[in-house]
Amino acid sequence: MAGLAIAPGVTLFDLAHGRAPEEAASSKVRWGMLIDSGKCATGCDDCVAACGKENGFTGSRETDSQWIRKVEIKDLRSGQSHSLPMMCQHCEHPPCVDVCPTGASFKRADGIVLVDRHICIGCRYCMMACPYKARSFVHEELHDQNPDVPRGKGCVESCTLCVHRVDNGGQPACADACAGAGHNAILFGDLNDPSSEISKRVATLATTQVRADLGLNVGVRYQGL
């Protein structure tokens, strides 16, 4: 976890994390994730399971939403393979927002790309526009939703970067689960804060944006690809 220990059991976190409830999300912050594919274990899907548990889908039904999926990639010549989670990349210039006819798809000031289900008409244009196949359509009626994660039939949805947790000073469920399993492959933090762990690693290590050629400046970066 990104933080500085100041006493046993007490860790100092970047101030951006401690936002008061009445304070709006600020563009001084840019939330992002750094995924170390070297640490991401083949066959492990703890992040996917944690996402489903947190946000209320199991993947047991064929029509269930998929906010995060594990991808195995292999270089056929060398045989080198990588395992990595793929989800909404929270682009700085999101194509889903560009194409949305109602303004339901939007980017929050702190870089989190969301769907406002109150005005989403379920046209699925954003699903076609997304180069990462990150979005899902809810085909069936849902029950027993997480009170923090309202979801319903007829809307498109995708990874929210667990915005309800982030607003309360937490981090996404996938990052928690990955750390809980001891892999620590997912690092969450503020890309705009030069002192944050993620910024330091992005500044010093070779990290990749998937489909960087599209110039979307994604918020989710990969290391070791």
């Binding site: 933080g3 100041i6 059991g9 007490v10 860790t11 100092l12 976190f13 994390h17 401690g18 936002r19 008061a20 409830p21 289900r117 009626e141 849902l142 027993d144 939703q145 997480n146 009170p147 923090d148 309202p150 979801r151 319903g152 039939k153 809307c155 947790r165 309360n168 000073g169 937490g170 981090q171």
Partner: peptide, 25 residues
Amino acid sequence: FECHASKPKASKVIKAMPNQSVQTG
């Protein structure tokens, strides 16, 4: 309530990062 839960949270636990001194609502 087609999207929002009609029941209160199962456990009213406030998710706070360690050492977060800001009240969470």
